[in-house]
Amino acid sequence: MNTPTLFGLCAVALVGVGLYGLIVNPQPLRKILAFNLIGSGVFLLFGAIARRGATVGMGGDPVPQALLITGIVVAFSATALAVALVQRLFDEAGSVTLAPDAPARAPVEPPDA
């Protein structure tokens, strides 16, 4: 066991934890958090892989490290968009439920206050 392997295993466990949360938590904000956990697990795995590729004079493979920065910024943008959507949905509908039958019902019944 060395540091990259350790954090690689930690990373895949984070993916599992996030996956569970994504499935069982009905609240959209919690799903966004779970998505971020999965994302950080993926990033961490990439970081562990970068560390495995260390050479003399370089602490890690710079290609994954650079891509990680891109990935983190993209994940942040995704989070911001999702959070903005949730808030607007809350403003418009007064609830944030994602129940599959909700949209089909909406045109018939008045939106619940």
Binding site: T3, P4, F7, C10, F43, L44, G47, A48, A50, R51, A54, G59, G60, Q65, A66, L68, I69, I72, V73
Partner: peptide, 13 residues
């Protein structure tokens, strides 16, 4: 963790 993985650029981000 990023510091421990020798990725200071990522740690800063």
């Amino acid at each position: 963790v990023w510091i421990r993985l020798a990725a200071p650029d990522v740690a800063l981000t």
